[in-house]
Amino acid sequence: MITANNIFKSFSGKTVLEDVSVHFEPGKTNLIIGASGSGKTVLLKTLVGLHEADSGEIWYNDVLFSQLLFKEKKAMRQNIGMLFQGAALFDFATVEENVMFPLTMFTTKSYEEKRERVNFCLKRVNIIGAEKRYPGELSGGMQKRVGIARAIALNPSYLFCDEPNSGLDPNTSILIDNLIREITQEYNITTIVNTHDMNSVMEIGDKVIYIHEGKKWWEGSSADILDADNPELNNFVFASNMTKMLKKLSAK
């Protein structure tokens, strides 16, 4: 469970997050949605501590994460997995080495044990036979899946995904979405996904938070979103002609 209370964040005097309070449940896929530049990524990076909030509290269960010392935060982070927008796989390492990296840095497992865990994680994300390939030799979808494998290597309790579908075709996007949902439910992880893909919202969103101009504008389930009485949210959700048409059809 993750709770953020009254988060404020600004860069060079420009306010990016304003009084954002959110709560994320374990075993559920929590989605943060919003237009580009609305502050989603800043919120996500603030939640994991890559950005420091100007004010406000961030709780991981009963631990006040925002007040932890550097060393305590470092230890806490080993319990957090993150999939970055561009997968952020290390160029200098093979697929196997990428997934093995957190195991090498933070466990005392033998090489064989680490390999076993790497193979398990890669198999879980359906990457077979690409262990010795470098990230540059993989497709976008494969990179994202390796990113997920690396994120779950240490068996984290929290999983953060920043725009997991960006740059992917609709079929691969659905595969990645389903994978995130399955892993969340399988390991009872608190998962937070940043996205502006409405397909993802409808596919995997247990809980949806809409961020607009740095503020939390709306909160609810994916089932509620279509009937929400919020003009800004409606503008975002029904931005394309196709979704507008679907809304008209469903209204009839």
Partner: peptide, 18 residues
């Protein structure tokens, strides 16, 4: 620099690596 802009450094920090 390339590692920074492709978030590879963020990924390391995220894992708790200095």
């Amino acid at each position: 620099g390339s590692m920074r802009i492709t978030e590879q450094i963020d990924a390391m920090e995220m894992m708790g690596v200095n």
